[in-house]
Design a protein around this nucleic acid. Structure first.
Length: 551
DNA sequence: GTAGGGTTAG
């Protein structure tokens, strides 16, 4: 009785009847792309047989809709072609019942619930009767890396079933995840656990993650402190770790402290080019051109010759000042000194020219490189696509994108992201979704930056159905749906008159244990006020008072 | 994780 019959799911032929368990059916429904031409005759309930039949007319989706508004009737028929193709490939029950896939989906389903505490996550996972594996955990940590409670829950649950400790690398992933969510007490607890497991469990990688995550959270003194005490964790305090802390501080807008640390330790730990390059980069980002130059001088005084990275950093600093005359001089100097510019140097120069509306000069850099037979890479092309699109030349940008394979350059995530962003900026919805689909067929993995412009565009166009499709798509592709996503959605929906949806996303974020930015609340409240929706406003204000559970 | 992707609107 636990089996049910389904017909014509997701483009399967009507004549082809497949047997699916309830769970398979639900996972299929959950993972199915938008606008499948199906009609669920009977809503799925546990242990209930399900009958699905093809809708005779337009595709209708009747499943799980509590709110009609969420499921706008489809217009994106081209997704359906995809299914036709899948059908041709013989996509059937065997494909969808792949065990590890099913496990991943089961776990994901469990983790999408809202949990009060870490213990309740672990409990729910215990009840799921899934047997954990190392690869399943790795996948889930990635999928939920913006959601510490789920990630840590999976980790604890799995380790308790595996009968052995995870590898140091897996622990490092957990450390990074907790640091990303600013759960520093928990992060340190895990570091201590690692120390207790045995020697060499904590490595320079672990401590680099700790230092960088503290730095990113603006806790610069804590990150410096972690470096000072690093030997307590069995990691040497050497040039490698010194460079990590200097680089982290320089990147996190605290190059002054980075410089302090360099001065404090330079006698004990003699710096190398890496140290100076990080400092130069920090000064450049702080828009302190003079300091970039003096750091380079100091480098020479230490008997270290500036390398291509030092020069490139200096050039980037002049690019920020739009001093392109000086940039040209430096490019010449590099040639003379036998340290010629490389592809990265040229990409920076071209990009800066393009951003400064000097598109013709930027294209001259491109021509020069082509003429010289330079090997151009994907990042270079992404820059080119970006500046062309920014200059309003979307057609040219697309042409460059299309030409890449002919020139033997593989289009990667970054290339697709740039193209998708460009197309979305011009609100070409179909094109944008086609590109996402193309990524799928070409096996290029999407990341957060792939979805962000698409989600924004959907907010603008009020495409709620596509939006919900994209969110599922994200998670299915192991791109974690975190605070960044919620923030984008709340803002986007608020600004485009989808207030109720903005509220429910805000609520969802709180329930998932995220602490929304103040601006998210403010924006929603102001809009609700404007619309005179006092009931909802009260609800949101109450939401603010909910203190997230820390364990 | 020593240098290259652009983000919040009006």
């Amino acid at each position: 009785m636990n089996r049910c019959f389904a017909r014509s799911i997701a483009g399967f032929n009507v004549n082809k009847v497949c047997k699916l368990s309830c769970i398979s059916f639900c996972t299929l429904i959950e993972s199915s792309k938008i606008d499948d031409p199906i009609e669920v005759i009977k809503p799925p309930k546990d242990d209930d047989p399900i009958v699905v039949a093809e809708s005779p007319e337009i595709p209708i989706w009747v499943k799980i809709s509590e709110n009609e508004d969420d499921f706008v009737l489809p217009s994106l028929s081209y997704w359906i072609d995809n299914y036709k193709r899948n059908e041709a490939k013989g996509y059937d029950e065997t494909t969808i019942s792949n065990k590890s896939d099913i496990d991943a989906k089961k776990i994901t389903k469990v983790l999408r619930e809202r949990f009060e505490s870490l213990d309740s996550v672990v409990q729910a996972l215990n009840d799921s009767r899934v047997t954990p594996s190392e690869s399943l955990v790795a996948q889930m940590l990635k999928r939920f890396d913006n959601n510490w409670k789920s990630a840590y829950g999976v980790f604890i649950w799995a380790e308790s079933h595996m009968g052995a400790k995870f590898s140091p690398a897996m622990y490092d992933v957990l450390i990074d995840c907790l640091g990303k969510s600013k759960k520093f007490d928990l992060m340190w607890e895990v570091v201590k656990q690692m120390v207790d497991i045995g020697e060499n469990y904590v490595t320079i990688n672990t401590m680099a993650k700790v230092i960088r995550r503290l730095g990113k959270a603006g806790m610069h003194e804590d990150s410096i402190d972690a470096f000072r005490r690093i030997e307590e964790f069995g990691v040497k305090r050497d040039l490698l770790t010194l460079n990590v802390v200097i680089d982290s501080l320089a990147k996190e807008k605290n190059v002054e402290r980075a410089n302090d640390i360099y001065l404090e330790f330079k006698d004990e730990i003699p710096p190398n080019s890496h140290t100076f390059n990080s400092l130069m980069h920090g000064w450049s980002k702080a828009r302190q051109l003079g300091k970039v130059q003096t750091t380079m001088d100091e480098m020479r005084e230490h008997g270290i010759c500036p390398d291509v990275i030092s020069y490139t950093t200096l050039i980037e600093a002049y690019c920020c000042e739009k001093d392109f005359r000086k940039v040209d001089l430096l490019l010449e100097e590099m040639q003379e000194k036998g340290c010629p510019p490389n592809i990265i140097t040229y990409t920076i120069v071209m990009h800066a020219l393009g951003k400064s509306k000097e598109i013709d000069k930027a294209l001259k850099v491109y021509d020069k490189m082509k003429a010289r037979g330079c090997v151009l890479d994907t990042s270079f092309y992404s820059s080119l696509i970006y500046i062309l699109s920014k200059a309003g030349r979307l057609k040219d940008a697309r042409e460059v994108f299309d030409e890449m394979p002919e020139r033997g350059i593989k289009r990667d995530t970054q290339t697709y992201n740039t193209m998708i962003t460009s197309v979305c900026k011009h609100t070409q919805e179909e094109e944008a979704l086609k590109l996402l689909r193309e990524m799928e067929t070409k096996g290029v993995n999407p990341d957060f930056d792939t979805y962000a412009p698409l989600l924004k565009m959907c907010c603008k166009l009020k495409r709620m159905k596509v939006l919900s499709f994209l969110l599922t798509h994200m998670s299915d592709n192991n791109v974690s749906v975190g605070l960044g996503t919620y923030s984008l959605l709340v803002r986007g929906l608020c600004m485009n008159g989808k207030l109720k949806h903005a509220c429910s996303f805000l609520e969802d974020a709180v329930m998932k244990g995220f602490i929304p930015y103040d601006t998210m609340f403010k924006m929603v409240e102001t809009e609700l006020e404007k619309e005179g929706m006092s009931e909802e406003k009260k609800r949101i204000q109450e939401l603010k008072l909910i203190q997230p559970n820390t364990c």
